[in-house]
C-alpha cells in the first residue's frame, strides 16, 4: 500500500489540478513535507485522506488501492495480452503506451507502480527509457521489468546494465509473470 504521494499523484487522486494541490500544500491546508535536501513535496497517506475528507472529495480513487501498471510495447497484440492478463487478475490498474516517448509522458502523468517495458521500441529503446526513469529520484520506488524476445546473451547483459528490476524473456509463462509482478510490488 502506498504511504506517501507526490503532488501529481495527490492531484490525480483528488481529481484536481496539480497547481491546486501545490497551492494547498504551500498554504498549509494540505499537510506534508519536502524531501530533505530538495524542494520536492511529499504528502503522507493520512494527510491526504484528511485533506480529501475536509474538502468533501470522494475517496474512491485512493481507496481502490489498485496497483498501477504501465505496459509499453509497440506490438498491439502483446499489449492487449498484457492488459487481458493483468485486468483478469483484478489487482491492477493498467495503462499502455506504444512508444518510448508516450512511455515517458505516462510515467509522469500516471505514476505507475510498475512498468512492463519492451526493449525494441520504434523511437527510443527500452533500456534508454529505463535509464532515464532511474535517473529521476521521483520514480525511485517504481519497478521496471524489461520484456524482450532478444536471445543474444550479450544483448541481455547490456539490457540489465540499464537498471531494470527484472528481465523476462518472450515468450513467457503468464502465471509466472503475474506471480513475479506480485512479488516485486509487495516489497
Amino acid at each position: 500500500m502506498k504511504s506517501v504521494f507526490t503532488t501529481g499523484e495527490a492531484a490525480e487522486i483528488c481529481k484536481v489540478s496539480q497547481q491546486t494541490i501545490i497551492r494547498c500544500f504551500d498554504s498549509g491546508r494540505l499537510r506534508g513535507f519536502r524531501v530533505p535536501g530538495s524542494r520536492f513535496r511529499r504528502i503522507p497517506r493520512d494527510a491526504l485522506i484528511a485533506f480529501m475528507k475536509d474538502n468533501g472529495i470522494p475517496p474512491d480513487a485512493l481507496d481502490s488501492g489498485k496497483l498501477k501498471i504501465l505496459v509499453v510495447d509497440d506490438d498491439p497484440e502483446i499489449v492487449e495480452l498484457f492488459v487481458d492478463v493483468l485486468e483478469r487478475d483484478g489487482r491492477f490498474e493498467v495503462k499502455t503506451a506504444n512508444t518510448g516517448y508516450d512511455a515517458g509522458i505516462l510515467t509522469q502523468e500516471f505514476g505507475p507502480d510498475l512498468i512492463i517495458l519492451d526493449y525494441m521500441l520504434p523511437d527510443i529503446n527500452g533500456n534508454v527509457v529505463c535509464q532515464t526513469i532511474r535517473k529521476n529520484p521521483n520514480f525511485e520506488h517504481m519497478k521496471i521489468v524489461i520484456v524482450s524476445g532478444v536471445v543474444n546473451q550479450d544483448e541481455i547483459n547490456d539490457l540489465l546494465k540499464s537498471g531494470p528490476d527484472d528481465f523476462v524473456k518472450k515468450p513467457f509463462n503468464i502465471e509466472k509473470l503475474i506471480e513475479r509482478i506480485g512479488e516485486m510490488l509487495a516489497t
Binding site: D75, E77, V85, G149, V150, E175
Partner: peptide
C-alpha cells in the same frame, strides 16, 4: 528473426495459456 519471431510466439504462448 529470433526477436521478431518471439513477439508472436509470446502472443501465442500467452493466449494459449489464457
Amino acid at each position: 528473426a529470433a526477436h521478431e519471431m518471439n513477439n508472436p510466439l509470446a502472443v501465442i504462448s500467452g493466449r494459449s495459456q489464457l
